[in-house]
């Protein structure tokens, strides 16, 4: 199966960017990786229901303290008045 992989499209989905050289290397990598991942056999699909959560083991609805805003913001590259700040998002 010959695939035409759109590196640019995938990169944009993954929020990554590559220059022409890197893109060329990636295209080559992809070819060999996908060959290697290759012809995966088609097998019978059976949704395994053995590992299910029991409803009464779910978390109870009780509040517990989180992390203080000061500590959270210490890690933020940029913050202002308790908010995390980023360049202006155009929501349109």
């Amino acid at each position: 199966m010959k695939r035409r992989i759109d590196i640019k499209h995938i990169a944009s989905l993954a929020k990554l960017s590559f220059d022409d050289q890197e893109t060329a290397i990636l295209e080559k990598n992809f070819e060999s990786i996908l060959d290697f991942a290759g012809e995966l056999p088609i097998l019978v699909d059976a949704d395994d229901m053995s590992d299910v959560l029991e409803l009464d083991k779910l978390r109870d609805d009780h509040i517990s303290a989180g992390i203080s805003v000061d500590i959270l913001l210490k890690q933020a590259p940029s913050s202002l008045n308790g908010f995390i700040s980023v360049p202006k998002v155009i929501e349109n």
Binding site: H62, I63, I67, V69, G82
Partner: peptide, 17 residues
């Protein structure tokens, strides 16, 4: 997570990892 859902708190004061 177990953070409170109460409305109107100061920003980022009802958060956890």
């Amino acid at each position: 997570c177990s953070c409170s859902t109460a409305f109107g708190a100061e920003p980022n004061t009802q958060c956890c990892p």
